[in-house]
Simulated assay, not measured.
Amino acid sequence: MSPFLIVEREGPVVTATLNRPDQRNALTSDADFRAIVDFCGEVSTDRSIRAVVLTGAGSAFCAGGNVKDMKAREGLFKGDPYELRDRYRTGIQQIPLALWELEVPVIAAINGPAVGAGLDLACMCDLRIASRTASFAHSFVKLGLVPGDGGAWLLPRVIGQSRASMMTLTGDMIDATTALDYGLVSELTDPEDLLTRARSIAGRIAANPGHATRLSKKLMREAQDLSLKAVLELSAAYQALAHHTHDYEEAVDAFLERRAPRFEDR
């Protein structure tokens, strides 16, 4: 079987593609979860990677959990209530933890439906752009379920409590234009231009020193749960680290000398 995650690299930008188009890139098996978690670990330890694009193969971004597996009580959905609880905790819930801790910026290039856990996966990314043909649903209630992978925490932080409540409690699908209005995505593209545009944004991020983008992302994530005073203290610490990097000195020299910088990821 082909790998669930196809990884391609061009310079400091990595593109990761969910690769189960026949299953609309559903997230069900432990191997699928582990592929994403392991990928995050590899990216985290490679300081030369400065941006990631996450997309889906075929017509969908990610359809969430496989409903056929739910019916058959297989994969993630196998076992008694205690076993199911542990399967969620040690399985799919490791993905939001891994992506949340990943300091490299991640852009979701949403090429088609992002449904249930697929929508949550998009919300775990830092930026989201979408094809005009994409669609979105927080559809757990339609199956008598609740968001099991962090969506109740993620979605309100992306689009606000009221709109997140509307999407979560109705389970209704919204189109790409509505997603743009909600702030769920930052821009729309024609389908054929989506990946090019996502990689262009990734390239603009990657043109900056990796330590600066990683620390800035980390700071913004930590700031969501800290007081202003605590964020200022953390900002001072991160800034002190940044001032003592080679690439900071190179950036300052390049600015003053009016030339393109040459960063070395150190």
Rank of each mutant, 00 (worst) to 15 (best):
V146R: 03
V146A: 07
Q161D: 10
I159M: 12
D149P: 00
L169R: 08
A164F: 04
A130D: 07
Q161A: 11
P147W: 02
L145C: 00
L169I: 01
A176Y: 09
L155V: 15
I129L: 15
T133R: 11
T177Y: 14
M167G: 02
H138P: 00
D175C: 11
G151I: 09
P156E: 14
T177S: 15
L155S: 02
R163Q: 14
A130H: 04
S162W: 00
L143H: 04
G150I: 13
L155E: 02
I174Y: 13
A134H: 03
S131Y: 08
T168W: 00
F136I: 07
R163N: 14
L145G: 00
A134Q: 06
S135E: 10
M167P: 04
M166H: 12
T168I: 08
S165F: 08
A164H: 06
G171I: 00
R163H: 11
G151M: 03
M173F: 12
D149T: 13
T177L: 13
L155C: 03
L154H: 00
S135Q: 09
A137W: 03
M167R: 05
F140E: 12
S135R: 14
F136R: 02
I129M: 13
T177H: 14
A137C: 07
M167N: 01
I174C: 13
L145S: 03
I174F: 14
G171Q: 07
P147Y: 04
R163T: 14
I174N: 14
G160T: 09
A130C: 10
D172S: 13
L154Y: 04
G148E: 01
Q161E: 15
S165C: 13
S139I: 01
A152S: 13
G144I: 05
R163C: 05
L154S: 04
V158L: 07
T170I: 05
R132W: 02
T168Y: 00
A134W: 01
S165P: 03
V146F: 05
A164P: 03
V146Y: 02
Q161K: 11
G150Q: 08
M173Q: 15
M166A: 11
